[in-house]
């Protein structure tokens, strides 16, 4: 509860901060829109050559790109600004000052910074999703929407855990500064339905790098192809992932010997 209150403060401060940098908001918006457009180009070209791929039509894949944009937008708003500076915390000893604070250090390091401007990408993602849904003629009922929302949240938790695990490797490897780039390039796979990949890659994208829970499953839920079983699996995996990442963090902290002073 206390953490939630704290997080609300972080958010309020970030909004105030953002009002100082209006040009930043505008460029983030423009770059986001162009990247969204570019991200759709391969999909449009692909469906210029075929009507459907493994049961997915063009409209459904466009809706999926919308979900992808929402998820990556949320990650870039709330998680990215933190995990991107994690290695400098660990390798330059800035972690010391955080450990002294009366708050869970892992919570603080995962949620302290918020990039409000990235929320514009969430908005454009919702528009694309709506467009795709209308085009494909899907009319999800309340239960299906609920399933999709829960699955997206599971996806966010799982992706945060994976990204955290990548950056925590700095505890042992030191020079992993640009590791976020690996996360960003693998997460691109979420632009496409899971069935577009060969079977071994599908397992990888479900259990190792679980981007499937963030995009493919929510969309399948919206089209009514998914039962509550998958939702349960998503929640179960998320709980395991959170427990694991807590453990990794604690293990890592034990090896941390401070870099400065």
């Amino acid at each position: 509860m206390r953490h939630l209150r704290l997080w609300r403060r972080f958010f309020a401060q970030a909004v105030v901060r953002e009002t100082h940098y209006r040009a930043h908001f505008l460029t983030t918006l423009l770059v986001g829109l162009v990247q969204l457009g570019l991200g759709i180009v391969p999909t449009l070209l692909l469906f210029g050559f075929t009507q459907e791929v493994h049961g997915w039509t063009r409209a459904e894949v466009i809706a999926l790109v919308g979900v992808y944009q929402v998820v990556t937008g949320l990650m870039a708003t709330f998680i990215g600004p933190n995990l991107n500076r994690m290695t400098s915390y660990l390798t330059e000893g800035e972690l010391d000052a955080v450990l002294l604070r009366p708050v869970s250090s892992q919570f603080y390091l995962t949620f302290r910074w918020i990039n409000v401007a990235e929320l514009s990408n969430v908005a454009s993602g919702i528009i694309v999703l709506a467009f795709g849904l209308v085009q494909s003629g899907l009319t999800p009922n309340v239960g299906q929407v609920l399933q999709a929302v829960v699955l997206v949240m599971c996806g966010l938790v799982l992706l945060t855990a994976v990204w955290s695990a990548l950056v925590y490797s700095a505890f042992w490897l030191q020079s992993v500064g640009p590791i976020g780039i690996v996360y960003l390039s693998v997460v691109e796979a979420g632009r496409y339905p899971l069935t577009f990949f060969p079977v071994p890659v599908r397992s990888f994208l479900t259990f190792v790098f679980p981007v499937a829970f963030a995009t493919t499953y929510p969309l399948q839920a919206l089209s009514g192809d998914l039962g509550w079983g998958s939702v349960g699996l998503g929640i179960g995996l998320s709980v395991i992932a959170v427990l694991l990442i807590r453990l990794v963090w604690q293990r890592g902290l034990r090896t941390y010997a401070s870099a400065s002073s």
Binding site: P42, L46, T50, V53, H54, E188, Y192, F196, F197, P198
Partner: peptide
């Protein structure tokens, strides 16, 4: 690699 897998599937 991701693009390659997608186009091969298509």
């Amino acid at each position: 690699l991701i693009s390659l897998l997608i186009w091969r599937t298509a």
